[in-house]
Design a protein around this nucleic acid. Sequence first.
DNA 1: TTGCGTTTCAAACAATTGTATGAAACTATT
DNA 2: AATAGTTTCATACAATTGTTTGAAACGCAA
Lengths: 223, 223
Amino acid sequence: MATDQTRTAILIAAERLYAERGFSDVTLRDIVAEANVNLAAVNYHFGSKDELIAELFVTRSIALNRERLRELRAAEDAGGGRADIHAILRALVGPILRGCLGPENQRSAVARFMIRASIESVPPIRRIKNKEIDHLRKFAAAMQRALPDSSEVDLFWGLHFALAMAHHTIRESERLTKLSDGQCDLDDVEDVIARVVRGAVLGLTTRDQAAKSPPKVAAREAR
Amino acid sequence: MATDQTRTAILIAAERLYAERGFSDVTLRDIVAEANVNLAAVNYHFGSKDELIAELFVTRSIALNRERLRELRAAEDAGGGRADIHAILRALVGPILRGCLGPENQRSAVARFMIRASIESVPPIRRIKNKEIDHLRKFAAAMQRALPDSSEVDLFWGLHFALAMAHHTIRESERLTKLSDGQCDLDDVEDVIARVVRGAVLGLTTRDQAAKSPPKVAAREAR
DNA sequence: TTGCGTTTCAAACAATTGTATGAAACTATT
DNA sequence: AATAGTTTCATACAATTGTTTGAAACGCAA
């Protein structure tokens, strides 16, 4: 079976194109052109377009989750079994942010592909995506150990918001740059990570000095 | 020109279907079936599929922005010209959250359509979307007036994160419910809004007591 | 070299897409 | 009622999609 060059050429090309332009407007013909292989090769090696996407997603999903867990474990080891909440969230959002942001040249199609996948919900991916929940539970559990006094609900919200900030930053990095006239530096990945983590942690650790619902102004019609 | 029933039937059907299933897998034939009109009616009334989408998006975009600004102005009036930061962010994320969450029956296709539009970047929408930046600038300006001591960069990040939490909550509401075993109540819209606003405001108002970058644990390989 | 399994290729396939056509049906003014 | 303008309809069209086919090319053990 040689070196699987054709197979991997397809995978690489597909990932690159999907990451760039999204699933809906990349055709098999686009992929085989990019990969310099024959049209029929996709169906020969993968069976169908959906199976190609699924294979890509599964592979990358596993790798991303592994990296996240590696960093989580490392943080737990460094803390003698109990990781700091900052480190936990950093392990959650760091890998994907590092892959998607930073100077143009070092951005990986890998990470951007994963973001696409988490957004444009195409059937073959939707089926797999449910397993991610189990993965997130591990982080929820770690957070619980780090902040045993926080309510479980608040922890889930914190986890959820951390992912929200990370993903949204990746998706809308261009808009944020434009909005801030370039003042927000999306190339300084570690700063972005710090901001995301800090935002999420603050929400988790700051006891409500003010009542939960802020002053009753607005929200109803004026005056 | 009668009552435009056909035209509006198409708009309603299209919005409903797009909101539900996304742009990529809703065809004109799906739309006309849902609207009970003839296939050719779309091209007759709108010119093309893209123009139909564009019209939908423009209309809804204007309405959403108007509602946001209305709430912002109301908050400013209530505060004697200077709105509270909570109220500003509430005006930003409230309208879309109220439209997308809450008990099934009262969720509007309108708001969900807008979320789809902000995600699945289809050409006719991408062209229009740039104008949203001007709209966001108004909120940034209001935030600056509310928190004159904060750095501009931090304010942009705060605005950005508020939108992040709102949008992500809408998109991933199902996952959050599953992850938390139903403990996070996505039907209590006002609570969700309060959480989002509180999270964003905390990031803006809490002075860094700890250094910006938390303890140097983890992030590098273990030990 | 022969033969056999694997891989590549050009071509064709059926299905689906958005769009166009031209006749019919309708509406309302004269 | 007759006419002109608008709207609807069934149908057809061209383009694009993922997939299949069967023959050619290749790799390699015998």
